[in-house]
C-alpha cells in the first residue's frame, strides 16, 4: 500500500467515526464535536492528495485552510443556535427540538 492510500484510509476512519457519532450522539453539542471530526477527515484527505501526488500542493493546503475557516464559522453559528435552543427548551437534547411553529 502506498503512503497516499494509508492517509486516505485514516481520513475515511475519521469520516466513519464522525458519521457514527452524528447519529449516536443525543445532544446538539455532541453532534457538533462529531462534525468537527468529519471536517478534520476532509482536511487530512485534501492535504494528503496535494502533498503526495503530482497535484498542486499549494491548492491542497489552501483548500484545507478554507475547510478550517468553514469549521470555525460553523462552530460559531451552532453555538448561537444551541444557546437559543437551551433558552427555549431547557435542554440541548436533539429529540426535544421536534416541534415546528406554524
Amino acid at each position: 500500500m502506498n503512503p497516499l492510500t494509508l492517509y486516505q484510509l485514516v481520513a475515511i476512519m475519521l469520516l466513519a467515526l464522525g458519521l457514527f457519532g452524528l447519529i449516536w450522539r443525543r445532544t446538539l453539542i455532541g453532534m457538533l464535536i462529531c462534525v468537527e471530526l468529519l471536517l478534520n477527515g476532509a482536511g487530512l484527505s485534501l492535504v494528503a492528495s496535494g502533498q503526495l501526488t503530482k497535484a498542486s500542493a499549494v491548492l491542497g493546503q489552501l483548500g484545507t485552510l478554507l475547510i478550517m475557516g468553514l469549521a470555525a464559522a460553523e462552530a460559531t453559528l451552532v453555538l448561537a443556535i444551541v444557546v437559543i435552543v437551551v433558552r427555549r427548551f431547557q435542554t440541548s437534547d436533539s429529540a426535544a427540538v421536534s416541534e415546528l411553529k406554524g
Binding site: 500500500m1 502506498n2 503512503p3 492510500t5 484510509l9 475515511i12 502533498q51 501526488t53 500542493a57
Partner: peptide, 12 residues
Amino acid sequence: IIGNPVESVSSP
C-alpha cells in the same frame, strides 16, 4: 481507494 491506488510520491 484500495482498489484504485493512485501513484504517490514518497517524499513530499
